[in-house]
């Protein structure tokens, strides 16, 4: 039940977060859990081949403070379309959905994939447009409140250099947000390594 807060705000307190736990997949990534999928699942396909824009793949790993791969991570992604517009009306039958979920399967060595298109540049309210990026949310056992981060692209050096958002990230940590393009294969592939903790720790955001 909702109760007025005692935290100095005349508001109801937000429901507090709890970890998604080890079995998040049965709820949000059924195939990984070994459950039969429903007619439509929110999966790693943010855009189908029919979507306008440059088709890309993102392949990532999440690494904990011991250097071990977090193989039970659940990643959610939210991105703009090729024009830099967020398409908020989520429909299963759309070529571009904007939102997706991914999690490593049993034999993926902790790697997860997203199939999408490269997003366009999104306006920044007080400055020049931001460089292309994908917003990620990370959920897992041991993560009490999900972590927000972004993925930028290393072949957008010029846009990255001009990005008002990236400019505010300490220079020495900026590269933790930048995915590396890999050559070979039909679809351009970008690799992301997210470090939850330690010397190469990824930048996480509060907003």
């Amino acid at each position: 039940m909702t109760q007025p807060t005692k935290n100095g705000q005349l508001l109801y307190p937000e429901s507090p977060s709890q970890t998604a736990g080890p079995y998040v997949h049965i709820g949000l990534a059924l195939e990984v859990a070994g459950l039969p999928p429903r007619d439509f699942e929110i999966g790693p396909e943010i855009a189908t081949a029919e979507a306008a824009g440059e088709a890309i793949e993102i392949v990532g790993t999440v690494i904990d403070g011991n250097g071990d791969v977090v193989d039970d991570i659940l990643v959610e992604a939210w991105q703009a379309d090729a024009e830099g517009i967020y398409q908020t009306d989520y429909r299963a039958d759309r070529a571009f959905r904007g939102f997706g979920r991914t999690a490593p399967g049993e034999h993926d060595d902790g790697q997860w994939w997203l199939h999408t298109i490269k997003p366009g540049r999104v306006a920044h309210p007080s400055s020049a447009p931001m460089a292309p990026h994908i917003n990620l949310m990370l959920f897992a056992r041991g993560i009490n409140i999900h972590l927000n981060t972004r993925v930028y692209f290393d072949d957008e050096a010029e846009a990255n250099a001009a990005c008002p958002f990236l400019a505010r990230v300490p220079a020495g940590r900026r590269d933790t947000l930048i995915a590396t393009r890999e050559h070979g294969g039909d679809t351009p592939r970008y690799r992301v390594a997210i470090h939850l903790q330690g010397p190469r720790e990824t930048v996480f955001f509060d907003f």
């Binding site: 967020y86 931001m130 056992r141 041991g142 972004r150 505010r168 940590r173 720790e201 930048v203 955001f205």
Partner: peptide, 18 residues
């Protein structure tokens, strides 16, 4: 081992992304 040690970076200007 799954908690960041650095402070979260607070966005003073949230964008359409958020």
């Amino acid at each position: 081992a799954r908690s960041p040690q650095q402070a979260l970076m607070s966005l003073q200007t949230p964008t359409a992304s958020e």
